[in-house]
Computed example of a mutant assay.
Amino acid sequence: MKRKSQYHGWVNSSAGNLTTTVSRELKFKNEIKFDNKGTEKKVEQKVVEEIEISVVSETRMKISHTTMKREYPLTITTKTSKPSREDGTIIMHSELENEWNEEKKWSDRDSHSCSSSLKNRQKCKGCMSVQDRIVLQGGATTEQSYSYNGEASTYSREIAAVNGKLVHDTANYVNSPSVSAM
C-alpha cells in the first residue's frame, strides 16, 4: 500500500517571498505467516518513506533542496513447543529484529551540498519455559548497533545485553576538521 501527499507554504521575508514544498510518499507492507499448526508465527513489516523538501524564491530560483529516504523493517518470530507429556511444560521462543535506516541529501543555490546516513538496528532473542500459565524460567539477549556518517563526523556504537546485564559496549567517534562551514 502507498500514500502520497504534498504541502505548499510561503513566507514573505527580507529575501523576498519564499515558497516551501514538501512531498512525501509512504509505502508499507505487512505479512503474517503461520506454520506448524499455528505454533510458529512470523510477522514481517516493511515501511519506506521518501520525503523531498524544496525552497524557491519568487523568481523560481532554488534556495535549497533536501531529500530523505527512510526504511523501517520489522520482523517478529515466535515458536511454541507442544506441551510435554510429563508435566505440560511448553517452551516459547521469540525473536525480534527492527531497524531505522535513513539517507539524507541537501543542497543550496550556491551548489553546496552534503549528505548523511543513519542506521540503528536491534536484534532480540528470548526463551521461556511455561507450565500451567506460570513462567518457570527464561532468558533473553539484546544486541543494538547504531552508526551515523555525516560530512563533519562519523559515530558508531554497539551494545549487547544478556538477561538484563550489559556485556558489551563500544563506541567510535571521528570528527572531520577539514569540513568548512557553509
Rank of each mutant, 00 (worst) to 15 (best):
S129F: 01
K105Q: 05
S113Y: 08
T66L: 13
V162L: 14
K165E: 15
R109Q: 10
Q131A: 06
V48N: 09
T39I: 08
S81C: 03
T21P: 01
E99V: 03
I32Y: 04
K119H: 11
V47S: 07
N36Q: 09
T20H: 05
Y173I: 07
M128D: 02
K4G: 08
N175P: 07
S57H: 12
I63N: 03
M182I: 08
K62T: 13
G138Q: 03
T78K: 05
A160P: 02
I32G: 08
K104G: 10
E49L: 13
E143T: 04
V167Q: 04
M61W: 08
G139N: 07
N30F: 01
E143S: 12
L118C: 04
C127A: 09
G139L: 11
D169T: 11
M92T: 04
D169Q: 14
E58I: 11
V56P: 02
R109I: 07
Q122R: 13
N172H: 15
T141P: 00
S14Y: 04
Q144R: 15
K46N: 15
V56R: 01
M1Y: 11
S129K: 00
S156Q: 14
G126D: 03
N12S: 09
S81F: 05
W106N: 03
R109V: 04
M92P: 00
K69I: 05
E49M: 09
N12Y: 03
P83V: 05
